[in-house]
């Protein structure tokens, strides 16, 4: 039976909850409420009052082809980088789980990328993937014009996907490895006795048993790819070339703080929030059904 802590007077319980409630209100509900308010008004760029415009901000954004391009870019980025980060992490974790020599070391080393701030790792990848020096320069020498993220939108998108995936591979790896190690060894052995080979065992036993973790990481990765991508885009491409990497989160910043369109940016942030909420609800409704909880 679950044991619950009870207080003799409800006011004591409220007192314990107040600090957290204040934090959530100050840093989440208040700004979010402000954003909703701004998105329904027209802000003066230099300050000095605002005019109520209803849903005009949303109408103008959603009728803008550039914004739809940004949504498409964001969804592409989210799908590919989440897929890549999770797939690579799962392969690495499965190999490590098979007690590869030095698996303890991988566990430590692979979490480090997650600890690096996005702009810092973006700076590193800007050098690593530079077309004029280093490895990609050699590739460019063999196939001239093969790689130039400064000119080619696809190359630029590939660059930010690589940088983002690299950061999240480590994060996903830790969760996958923990989930794999939580599967009793005797289950794997029983499957081996039942005649199942390594690959078959993975699909029949391990994969179904780590679906709760896969689901969790899917939700986190998709959400983060919409939000945590800002630093990488800002340093590596600044949304270019030709808006090819102008992800929704970056467009909010550039329209709001560079273009001084506060109201449009506020409306965009509301749309981004709604998109993430809808995606998360979708995942819980349709993907979670296929998850086996033990």
């Amino acid at each position: 039976m679950e044991k619950r802590v009870t207080f003799s007077r409800w006011s004591i319980g409220i007192l314990f909850a107040v600090p957290q409630l204040i934090l959530i209100f100050t840093f989440f509900y208040w700004p979010a409420g402000q954003a909703v308010y701004w998105s329904l008004t027209l802000q003066q760029p230099w300050g000095g009052g605002n005019i109520w415009v209803g849903l005009d901000n949303f109408r103008s954004i959603l009728s803008n082809a550039d914004y739809w391009k940004s949504i498409t870019a964001s969804l592409t980025f989210a799908a590919i980088s989440t897929g890549l980060a999770m797939l690579i992490a799962l392969v690495l974790a499965t190999l490590t789980d098979r007690q590869l020599a030095g698996s303890r070391l991988y566990r430590v080393v692979l979490i480090w990328p997650y600890g690096i701030a996005a702009p810092a790792l973006a700076m590193a990848f800007r050098f690593i993937l530079a077309p004029e020096a280093g490895f990609m320069a050699v590739v460019n020498q063999v196939w001239p014009g093969f790689w130039d993220p400064g000119l080619d939108g696809t190359d630029a998108m590939a660059s930010i996907i690589v940088a983002f995936s690299w950061k999240y591979v480590g994060y996903n790896f830790i969760f996958f490895l923990a989930a794999l190690q939580a599967i009793p060894r005797s289950l794997i052995e029983a499957a081996a006795m039942d005649g199942s080979g390594v690959i078959r065992r993975f699909w029949d036993i391990q994969f179904p048993l780590i679906t709760p973790t896969i689901f969790f990481l899917l939700v986190i990765n998709i959400t983060e790819s919409f939000q945590d991508s800002f630093g990488i885009v800002d340093i590596m491409t600044s949304g270019g070339p030709a808006n090819a990497t102008n992800l929704m989160v970056y467009k909010i910043y550039s329209d709001g703080f560079k273009g001084l369109d506060y109201s449009g940016a506020a409306a965009q942030s509301i749309i981004l929030m709604l998109l993430i909420i809808v995606l998360t609800i979708f995942q819980f409704r349709f993907i979670e059904r296929r998850v086996h909880y033990r």
Partner: peptide
């Protein structure tokens, strides 16, 4: 060609 019965049964939970 061996079959084994484990101490904790090791049944596939799913």
């Amino acid at each position: 060609g061996c079959a084994m019965v484990f101490q904790n049964y090791a049944l596939y939970p799913h």
